[in-house]
Deep mutational scan, measured.
Amino acid sequence: MTFKLIINGKTLKGETTTEAVDAATAEKVLKQYANDNGIDGEWTYDDATKTFTVTE
């Protein structure tokens, strides 16, 4: 399955996707991606669209 991350950061905005077997696995990968890029904020997840959003 494809999961999307929408980034609403102070210095970085955009989106990325990852392939994962489930939402929990995708969340780990996407949170690591955000952490690697210095993004720390509030996370939400929409199961209907398989989209995570992080807002700083």
Rank of each mutant, 00 (worst) to 15 (best):
M1N: 10
T2F: 13
T2G: 05
T2I: 14
F3W: 11
K4F: 07
L5D: 01
I7C: 04
I7V: 08
I7A: 04
N8D: 07
N8E: 10
N8R: 13
G9W: 09
G9M: 15
G9L: 15
K10W: 12
T11C: 09
L12M: 14
L12K: 07
K13W: 10
G14T: 14
G14I: 15
G14A: 11
G14F: 14
E15Y: 07
E15C: 06
T16P: 03
T17N: 08
T17M: 09
T17P: 02
T17D: 06
T18V: 14
T18R: 06
T18H: 07
T18G: 03
T18I: 14
E19D: 11
E19P: 05
A20T: 05
A20C: 06
V21L: 15
V21H: 15
V21Y: 11
V21E: 11
V21Q: 11
D22H: 03
D22P: 01
D22G: 04
A23T: 09
A24M: 10
A24I: 13
T25G: 09
A26E: 00
A26N: 00
K28A: 14
K28D: 07
K28C: 05
K28Q: 15
K28Y: 12
K28N: 08
L30T: 01
L30C: 03
K31M: 10
K31F: 06
K31I: 07
K31R: 14
K31L: 08
K31T: 05
Q32Y: 05
Q32D: 11
Y33R: 03
Y33M: 05
A34K: 02
A34R: 01
N35Q: 13
D36T: 08
D36M: 09
N37K: 12
N37Q: 13
N37G: 05
G38V: 04
G38C: 07
I39T: 03
I39Q: 03
D40A: 08
D40Q: 11
E42D: 14
E42L: 12
E42Q: 11
W43A: 00
W43K: 00
W43C: 02
T44Y: 10
D46S: 06
D46P: 00
D47N: 13
A48D: 12
A48Y: 11
T49K: 08
T49M: 08
T49Q: 08
T49D: 07
K50G: 06
T51V: 07
T51S: 06
T51N: 02
T51D: 01
T51M: 04
F52V: 01
F52H: 01
F52R: 00
T53N: 05
V54I: 12
V54N: 01
V54R: 00
V54Y: 02
E56Y: 11
